[in-house]
């Protein structure tokens, strides 16, 4: 069964098309990387799928049902830069927000929710920082808190927006282990990703996107030099100066 089916999404931003004709479907228990140059609409796609921004047209089904009926099964990890880290709250509290969907409106947070949130923090090696004000965490630690919040959501399908951006090596390893664990548990994960060198080792499926999908399929097939050139255009030459195409693995 497909965990996610996206049919013909169109999004405009400031009257300019941001996404056109985006259709693809992701099988359950897969790890999908969404790859493309800056401004290709990768984050926009995730936000449009999750109905965080309006879309002109397009249908999204999650596990065979409309998205609205599956909210509790969806986990979302926004870009770290999108929130105000000076907000008066601590790490545990942010993780608890992952339980709000399950707790429900007007209901108080209970002891068992707190205990579960602590377990989630422990899973990403952050239990010592539970009481730490979030502005006093490093970038990698902040990302771990977001991961712990995602774990707390206990979702069937996860959408992650550049989780690897600006994190230390240890955090990157934590994220990768988590992705593998989720996959083994049959959860589905979509990740907006920037680093072409790691695409082959991290993801089973790959969506190459530049406003419209250039290629989608198992990484072995879709992540080819031809498709990359079609996605990045002239910018690929710049990228390959830093990393040889062999390193990227095409």
């Amino acid at each position: 069964m497909n965990a996610l089916e996206v049919a013909d999404i169109h999004v405009t931003y400031d009257k300019q098309p941001a996404l056109e004709h985006v259709s693809f479907h992701v099988p359950q228990g897969s790890l999908t990387g969404i790859i493309g140059p800056n401004g290709a609409g990768k984050s926009t796609l995730i936000k449009a799928i999750l109905q965080l921004i309006p879309k002109l047209s397009g249908d999204v089904t999650v596990y065979g049902q409309p998205l609205k009926e599956q909210r509790k099964r969806i986990g979302y990890v926004p870009q770290r830069s999108e929130v105000d880290w000076d907000f008066p709250t601590n790490a545990l509290d942010v993780v608890l927000m992952g339980r709000y969907g399950h707790i429900g409106m007007f209901k108080r947070v209970k002891k068992k929710d707190k205990a579960f949130a602590m377990e989630c923090l422990a899973k990403v090696g952050m239990e010592e920082y539970a009481d730490r004000q979030i502005s006093q965490l490093s970038g990698g630690q902040q990302q771990r808190v977001f991961l712990a919040r995602a774990i707390a959501q206990d979702a069937s399908i996860y959408f992650m927006d550049e989780p690897f951006a600006g994190v230390d090596a240890a955090t990157e390893k934590t994220i990768i282990e988590l992705l593998k664990e989720w996959k083994e548990e049959g959860r589905t994960v979509l990740v907006v990703h920037h680093d072409l060198q790691t695409v082959r080792s991290y993801f089973d499926y790959c969506l190459l996107l530049n406003k419209t999908p250039v290629a989608f399929g198992p990484t072995a097939e879709s992540f080819s030099l031809e498709n990359l050139e079609a996605t990045y255009g002239g910018k690929l030459a710049l990228l390959s100066q830093n990393a040889s195409l062999q390193e990227i693995g095409v």
């Binding site: 109905q51 909210r71 969806i74 929130v83």
Partner: peptide, 9 residues
Amino acid sequence: FDPQFAKGI
């Protein structure tokens, strides 16, 4: 704190 996440849940 995180309106996008709030919408997401």
